Simulated scan of single mutants.
Amino acid sequence: MVSPGSTVSILRDFFFKSPFHTFGMAFILFLLLYFLFASAALFITRFIQSSYKLSGQESYDPAQIRKEIKYSIVSIFIFALQAIFIQVAYVQGWIHINWQINIITLVPQILILFFWNELHFYLCHRLLHVGWWFRKVHKIHHTSYHPSPFSVYSFHWIEAFLLGTVIFLPLFLYPFQYLALLSLPVMSIFLNTLGHWDYDLFPHLKPSSLLKFSYRHAMHHRKVHGNFGFLLPVFDRIFRTGIK
């Protein structure tokens, strides 16, 4: 029987064996996450009352979804290319990863990465709404006026690269546990999917409520400027960029 530690060692050695291995595994991982969460969201919406749908449309536009999938696959390709840099940095000893599991420190590390993801997204998103960045880059994402779960990675390749840098700073600053690092893309796409599925399950709450993140991001797609945050409304409050 292969022990959990041996399994981790096998996966670690295979992932960092070569840039090709790293690229392939990262591409497959992001592809699986993308289609898994988007498909799950579509399935769940079958059981949700239509009155919760923000756009009022009965179903998602198939042509829009095809376009979103096309751009998302390009974004996933960019994420996988960025993983090659991580492979090189790890092999060269520029970064370190903790391959042990310690529950006591794992939860705080996941929380730190969660808050960093929120800040990184807000800063990048603000930049993407400035001049050239919006006209030539971020506008592609906003062609999904009524977003769908498949629009979570529907980016220009430059935007995909910019958002994909979220992992770099933590890797160079601290040897996070590998499970904490893996939680980052999972958390990101899970929350991103809920932010783009065009449903508001809490219509009676104020727009500033934590549970209204789906509504806030839907309004961002409608009105374009404002609500630049990811899940938390805190940075929109601090910088007064929230909209209703």
Rank of each mutant, 00 (worst) to 15 (best):
I243P: 01
K136I: 11
E58D: 13
P149H: 02
P233K: 02
F228R: 01
W157R: 01
L205P: 06
F172H: 11
K244I: 09
S154K: 07
L163N: 04
P149W: 02
H138N: 04
L194S: 07
P207E: 03
H142E: 08
F37M: 14
S148R: 07
S148K: 00
G131M: 07
L29Y: 10
P147S: 05
W99H: 12
Y174R: 08
S144V: 05
Q100V: 11
S55L: 04
W197R: 00
I48Y: 05
P147G: 05
S75M: 06
T22S: 04
V186C: 02
A180D: 09
F213V: 06
V8Q: 04
A38I: 13
W133I: 00
P175W: 02
D200N: 15
Q87H: 07
L31E: 00
L123S: 13
L119F: 15
L163A: 05
A83I: 09
V91L: 15
V186F: 01
F15M: 13
S209H: 13
I103C: 13
S75Q: 03
W94F: 15
L184K: 08
S55A: 04
K223W: 14
Y145W: 13
L182W: 15
S151G: 05
T241D: 14
V152E: 04
L42D: 05
H138V: 00
S209G: 02
M25L: 15
K212A: 01
H141G: 06
I140Y: 09
A80R: 03
S6C: 01
T165A: 05
N98T: 12
N227Y: 09
M219L: 12
E68K: 06
H138D: 00
K17N: 15
G131H: 10
E159D: 14
Y145R: 12
M219Y: 04
S72C: 08
I28G: 01
Y60E: 03
L127N: 02
H120Q: 15
V137C: 11
R222Y: 05
T143V: 11
R216S: 02
S39L: 03
